[in-house]
Simulated scan of single mutants.
Amino acid sequence: MQIVHNQLSYFNNVLGGSISSFQGDRILQYDNDKGTGRIQTVSLGSGISYTEYDMNLNQDFNFDLKLDENRSLYFVYCLEGNFRFTKGNDSQKVEALQTVVVGGSNDTINIKLRGASKSNLSIIKVTQDGSAIDNNNHQELYDQLFATFLNEDGEPHIGTFNLKIKEQLLQIRAITQVGLVRKLLIEGIVNFTLALEILHCKQDMENDGQVSSMLTKKELLRIEEAVNAIKRKPEYPYTVTDLSKEYGLSPTKLQEGFKVMEGTTVTNFIRNERLILAEELIQTSDMNISEIVYSIGFTSRSYFSKIFRNKFNCTPKAYLMNIRNVSLSA
């Protein structure tokens, strides 16, 4: 982690701004003639570090990632914008929704960010240091990561477009908890993201580098817009036909996109988001069950009770009574 902190100091010397600490992390913020931005290093154990880069640069900017004497892997995911990476004589462009994975030891990787544009990256570094591995799960994860990504020739791997990884990384930025809970949540998301990277790499190899979902980057971004619209207003009477027209996708591609991103159909996703809203209303509002049913877009109370029980293992009425009893006893 010290190397990551040293890198942040380098950014501070070049870009200016100020470094602060929060929950053991270090945060650089700058707003000057070089641009505006925020870089945060998150302190994790077991040889894993995580850094977020959210930068608006006025000019092109280069920085290096160091591969330690111990074998290391860098997972550089581009959430927004694009960048060019160089290792030795190999230089390639990485676009939004792609990960480049580069590994080795005693080597340097150069990242070039474009000026006059927004660059939003998340970088996970994994160092194979046996003394840092604290349990068998971490050991198994390390073994799979290095077996999958660290080739004898040291060539980097650039993944096809993957929106699911972006969704996971954004969850880290949305964490509001502090202390141990925050650290455990971040560790869990980072480990899950690394597992997704392994699965995605295997899919890429099976499909010979072609996008397995048959969706372009633009189409995936439209799916993301549709998902976010439903999350913001799940009670709206959506249909697959209307969503297809709204986001310029065929019904087949719309369904395929939801399966790629959310692992379910459009209809099931809408239903689940409505149930999440129903639970929130039961906990926070004074509405009765019938009022909640109609406010979230359902027309049948019996149907709502059935799917609510399937998800929460109790009836809506029992859930409501339990919430109110807890409030009265508090």
Rank of each mutant, 00 (worst) to 15 (best):
T239S: 09
Y238D: 03
L44Q: 03
I175S: 04
S295H: 05
F85W: 10
S131T: 05
T51H: 01
A226G: 05
E256Y: 15
I172S: 00
G248F: 04
E219A: 01
Q128V: 00
N56W: 11
D54W: 08
N110Q: 13
T51Q: 13
M261P: 12
S131Q: 09
E206L: 15
S212C: 11
S72T: 01
S91C: 13
S18Y: 07
L328H: 13
T86E: 09
M261G: 12
L163Y: 11
R274S: 04
A330D: 06
L169S: 02
L170C: 08
Y294S: 14
N58S: 14
M321H: 11
Y303M: 10
G159S: 10
T99N: 03
I172W: 03
G297I: 00
L194C: 05
E52Y: 14
K125T: 05
L199M: 14
G209A: 05
L328C: 02
K183N: 14
L196P: 02
G188C: 12
K253H: 05
K202S: 07
V190S: 10
T265F: 07
H5M: 11
L328Q: 08
E152W: 06
R271I: 10
M214K: 12
T160A: 06
Q168L: 11
G179S: 06
S300F: 11
F308C: 08
Q168D: 06
V42T: 06
V293L: 10
G130C: 09
E256R: 13
V266P: 02
N135R: 02
V42H: 15
V102P: 07
K125P: 05
D129R: 07
S43P: 04
E167L: 09
L97F: 09
S119M: 08
M321T: 05
K93W: 06
D208L: 06
I19Y: 01
D33P: 04
L73G: 00
Y294P: 04
L184S: 14
R309G: 14
G17F: 07
N207E: 09
V211C: 07
N313Q: 14
Y50W: 10
E167M: 03
V100D: 03
L170W: 06
D33G: 11
K311C: 12
F146T: 00
